Amino acid sequence: MAIHVLHYLHDGRAQWGVVANNAITPIPGEFKTTAEFIRANPVGQLLMLDGPTIPEADVQWLSPVTANQQFICQGANYRQHMIESGMDPDAKKFNMIFTKATSCIVPADSKLVKPNSVRFLDYEIELGLVLKRDVTSRATITDENLHDYVAGAVIVNDYSARDVQIPQMQFYKGKSFRTFGPVGPYLCLLEKQDMPKLKELVLTLSVNGTVRQNDSTSGLVYGPAETLTELSGVQDLHVGDLLATGTPSGCALTIPSPEKQRAAAQLPEAEKWRLFFALQAERPQYLQDGDVVEARIVSQDGSIDLGTQRNVVVAEAA
């Protein structure tokens, strides 16, 4: 059975609790990091939790992924997103991996600060997976043993400064500005029988009430098991680390057709990027001061409901 957990601030103290029907049952103990919390609180133990509750409205949300954990991301990982980006999902033979600075992690209801130097600020709703165990050598991870490696799921919004990321080829820099990584509100802890639902989650993102992104995790090109298997052959992973699995179609970014890209490749660099910026400037979808972004992920049967992120865009203080 899936258990929804909230990391929150109440009476000046950071706590963890199980959430149901807008009420929180506090979990005994103090856990400063996501890793500490996961190690000490198996799902079976939380299912037996009982005691007084507090209204969720009385607490302040914190991110369920703490800033000491790794923030690893997949790019171009939904079929329709690849197609709109001019890529062939059936021809792509590599898993695009990058990282974000953990200093960009903020609670799910935080303001999104638009840096004054950034012109093209984009949104990317993503399913985030939180790891259950350390992986320090090559491992073979399958759908059958995924529950041994994944503790649960969260919403991630991989906000991106496209005018940094694309022309400068700086994924890390363009996606790591402070506030560019809201996580939560809920960490949904999963058991073995819940894992198949990771393939049928519905992701929806709206801006000012208009839906921009809407897709299912059934559209993922590289799934969690094969991605974690690949990563295990490259780097160490740790309990509580976060893997953001990519975003569906519908972002503000628009990519020139392959024909136009080939033509642009013959142009001087300055002219090529002038045309790129002109193309992006025609897109009203890019976020502006005052825009409200809402992101939601839920399973078809409602047993997994990761809550709703709500971020208001604000200009960076001068």
Rank of each mutant, 00 (worst) to 15 (best):
R39T: 14
P52G: 03
L243M: 09
A153H: 00
T217V: 08
N77Q: 06
L205W: 03
P224R: 01
D143H: 09
F276T: 09
D158H: 07
E230F: 06
R119S: 13
L46G: 07
F98A: 07
L205I: 05
P196Q: 11
K114W: 09
V234C: 10
H81S: 08
G44A: 08
W61R: 08
L129P: 02
V18C: 04
I97R: 02
T245S: 12
Q300G: 00
F71K: 00
G302M: 04
P268L: 10
T254Q: 14
T308G: 01
L220G: 04
Q69E: 10
Q309D: 02
P28V: 06
Q213L: 05
R178W: 08
I297E: 00
R13M: 14
V292R: 13
S137K: 12
D134T: 05
L127D: 01
T254N: 11
G12K: 14
M82A: 10
I3K: 04
V135G: 01
T25I: 11
W273E: 10
K93S: 13
Y172T: 13
I27D: 06
A263G: 12
D241S: 01
Q261R: 15
V298H: 02
Q165T: 12
P256E: 11
E282C: 08
N145L: 05
Q15M: 15
Y8R: 09
V59W: 08
Y159G: 02
M1T: 10
F276V: 11
V202E: 14
A101F: 10
N116Y: 12
V183L: 02
A281W: 03
I166V: 15
M48V: 00
P167C: 11
Q70E: 08
I83Q: 15
A244S: 14
T247N: 01
I297N: 00
